[in-house]
Design a protein around this nucleic acid. Structure first.
Length: 712
RNA sequence: GGCGGGGUAGCUCAGCCGGUCAGAGCGCAAGAUUCAUAACCUUGAGGUCGGGAGUUCGAGCCUCCCCCCCGCUACCA
């Protein structure tokens, strides 16, 4: 039996569940159900990523243990998935993976050991300790090996990063490294596999990233700095950093490195997987992860599919600060699960960003589901009830009635309709295999339109009036009912509940889940079947009313949040109040280079260290953009010295040069001068770095200060 | 700045190698109809296919230039 293994990212427990995680999980669920119908043995993984310094900190702030915090968030995820019927009981995921499980520890250790035992493609150690030669590039957020930096021209100066051409810092923390730099060729070869990275445009991005040169990856932290993590095998003093820990969940969950899970799922049986990931974490899954696997002598994933982000109705990122998020409780309260699923799969072109708004959802639900599929089902079944005594009628039109049928505009031969359905069926499957869910669904809706038209043309309500046309009437209604049956089978993965209900209303036993869409044959709807009670599947949603209810709920929620925020004013902002991309799933949450990596090496300094930094008050005399640079502004600044300094700063995207003139600010006065875009910068302007994109906000004084005054 | 992807009806988008390609769905309007969840069916939108130039018998679809948007990436001491 063929197997199919699909994963969502494991969601990082630094924030509560949000629409993004729901979306990815819905897609995975849909894929799984479709494959199951097609006769594959499937395994569907989702879960949470629970280690790391961030979780340690959050827990500290909450006054609980990291484990308790992780439990809390994991529970919320499970609850959310249950709410939207994505849990095991509803036929959803097979495992809710947690990286704090014991079997995961075992599997991760095994992966590490195997990688460490093997040699890289260039015959070197895969994992090595890189502590004595700890040249760290702040921009790369990575350590540099000898062939990745250039010696400084002067004796005694730090070497320069080849990529950034900036001096490297000597960092004392020791760390294990993964020899990623030896894997470029191997990876580029892997990317040639058709469909390995999708969509195609993303594949190109990854290729150009790899071609630009890979650096070795720091894969451990000192236990003294990150204790909430899996220990490095055979080295008590280190813990395994994000990458290997989080990514390897995809194999430990199905039994790599542990008997317990192997029995339940089966690594040999299910690996390799199809990974569904947000586009923001594609690199980790398409580059690092395959490299780890290859290093350990394992097969890389089958597919890494990067999907897009869900944006608000205006196309902006969703964020709590903007107040444009979709509240999952609200969503659940006002919409059927199947309507949400339908919207996610039909409105969104899988792989691309999409707008997600309550209004659009209501429109889709009303036009496609209520007026479309729901109405077709309703009119068909009602007519069978009324004209055929509630039993699926005969499909047969005797030869002597052919003429009558034709007179009524009905083809005595159902072949045309049957062929159309077969074609739609084949297209549907092709689209599904290509992850083109929206196209597949469009195809199904072509069938809905066709059957609607057939009914309108044949006018069963007229046929019923003439005895001679009763066979025609029955045949037409049979055809409609049979088409409905096909639609149930095709659309089951998209809307498991609604299709099951139509199926039931058709009087059929069992569930469309058990039928293979590829095996649909015309005419297998048994005649004489007593149909069930006809009920509206998708009640029409009153848009105005629903929207005003939602808005009211939002206002209340907004008010509550504000109060809470006030109550903890002064406390650090919680991570979930920061504007973050909605799709930021777990496996990557920590994986923002520069964030955690830098934190990992932050150490206390002595007051004497601080005294080395000469901070001065400066006043901007002139300011202008640096030609051919997006970000650089060139200033001359009066530091109370004889001649003003020339200083460059990368703030052009956020500050108008004209408005900077005359401003007082803080300058690092004894920074080693450096050339940028041909201009020497003789200092550095201090600014706060805000939010995801690091928007600079320049440090200023509220009182008057003389130029050149020293800060200490 | 480099690389990549886009800019087509009010909205969301199809349009493969250039010649029924000027389209679909939604929304909107009119008509028809009553089996159905004010639904279904028919018809209509006269949109410079981002702007300009060119190649061609003929160009959303090819070439060049320009404008705008998005993604990746450099610079941001």
């Amino acid at each position: 039996m063929k197997t199919f293994y699909v994963t969502t990212p494991i969601y990082y427990v630094n924030r509560e569940p949000h629409l993004g995680s729901l979306y990815t999980t819905i897609v995975a669920d849909c894929l799984t159900r479709h494959k199951r119908q097609r006769g594959h043995e499937t395994f569907f993984l989702t879960g949470t990523d629970e280690h790391g310094i961030n979780i340690q900190r959050i827990a500290e702030r909450e006054g609980i243990t990291p484990r308790e915090h992780a439990d809390r968030i994991a529970t919320q995820f499970k609850k959310m998935f249950r709410m939207f019927h994505l849990d095991t009981e509803h036929g959803g995921y097979d495992i809710f993976m947690r990286t704090t499980e014991r079997f995961h520890y075992e599997g991760v250790s095994e992966l590490w050991r195997r990688a460490a035992r093997n040699r890289s493609p260039k015959g070197r150690e895969n994992i090595y300790k890189g502590f004595y030669e700890g040249w760290f590039c702040a921009s790369c957020a990575a350590y540099k090996t000898e062939d990745e930096y250039r010696k400084a021209e002067e004796e005694g100066q730090p070497p320069l990063c080849l990529e950034h051409n900036i001096p490297l810092d000597r960092v004392s923390e020791e760390s294990y490294f993964f020899r990623l730099s030896d894997y470029s060729e191997t990876l580029l070869e892997l990317f040639e596999r058709p469909g390995f990275i999708r969509p195609e445009s993303r594949r190109n991005e990854v290729i150009s990233f790899v071609k630009s040169g890979l650096q070795d990856l720091s894969v451990s932290r000192l236990k003294t700095s990150v204790s909430w993590a899996i220990p490095v095998p055979d080295d008590e003093s280190h813990t395994i950093y994000l990458w290997i820990d989080a990514l390897s969940n995809y194999i430990t969950a199905i039994g790599f490195g542990n008997q317990e899970r192997e029995r339940v799922a089966g690594f040999e049986k299910f690996w390799p997987a199809v990974h569904l990931v947000g586009k923001d974490i594609l690199r980790f899954h398409a580059v690092y992860w395959p490299a780890f696997l290859i290093a350990a002598g394992l097969e890389p994933p089958r597919v890494v599919y990067a999907h897009g982000m869900l944006l608000d109705g205006e196309g902006r990122k969703m964020s709590k600060t903007l107040g444009n998020t979709i509240d999952l409780d609200v969503l659940h309260k006002h919409f059927q699960t199947d309507a949400v699923r339908y919207f996610c799969l039909r409105e969104v072109v899988f792989g691309q960003d999409a707008k997600f708004s309550y209004e659009a959802l209501i429109d889709r639900a009303n036009s496609d589901l209520a007026s479309g599929l729901g109405n077709l089902s309703s009119r068909t079944l009602t007519m069978i009830n009324r004209y055929c005594g509630g039993q699926v009628p005969s499909a047969l039109i005797n030869e002597e009635k052919y003429l009558a049928a034709k007179r009524a505009g009905v083809d005595p031969d159902p072949q045309a309709l049957a062929s159309a359905l077969e074609h739609a069926r084949d297209q549907f499957i092709i689209f599904f295999d290509d992850f083109a869910f929206s196209r597949a669904i469009e195809t199904a809706w072509g069938v809905v339109a066709r059957v609607d038209k057939m009914l309108s043309n044949a006018k069963p309500w007229e046929l019923v009036k003439t005895e001679e046309q009763h066979q025609t009437l029955h045949a037409v209604l049979y055809r409609a009912a049979e088409a409905l049956r096909w639609l149930c089978v095709l659309l089951y993965p998209v809307m498991p509940e609604a299709t099951a209900r139509i199926y039931e209303q058709l009087g059929l036993q069992g569930s469309p889940a058990q039928l293979n869409p590829g095996s649909l044959r015309w005419g297998e709807l048994p005649e004489g079947t007593r149909i069930g009670e006809v009920k509206a599947l998708f009640p029409r949603i009153d848009k105005a009313k629903t929207m005003s209810e939602i808005e009211k709920a939002n206002e209340q929620a907004g008010g509550t949040h504000a109060t809470e925020a006030d109550a903890v004013a002064g406390a650090e902002a919680k991570s979930e109040t920061k504007p973050e991309p909605p799709m930021r799933g777990a496996t990557e949450a920590e994986a923002v280079p520069g964030a955690e990596s830098v934190e990992g090496v932050t150490q206390f300094i002595e007051i004497t260290d601080f005294a080395k930094i000469d901070l001065r008050v400066g006043q901007v005399l002139t300011a202008e953009r640096v030609p051919k640079s997006d970000k650089l502004l060139r200033f001359t600044i009066d530091l109370g010295e004889e001649t003003p300094r020339q200083v460059l700063a990368g703030i052009a995207e956020y500050y108008e040069p004209e408005k900077m003139v005359g401003r007082k600010l803080v300058v690092v006065a004894n920074l080693k001068p450096r050339k940028l875009r041909g201009f020497e910068s003789q200092g550095m302007i201090l600014a706060a770095s805000i939010g995801e994109e690091g928007r600079p906000v320049i440090a200023t004084f509220t009182e008057d200060v003389p130029n050149g005054a020293r800060l200490k």
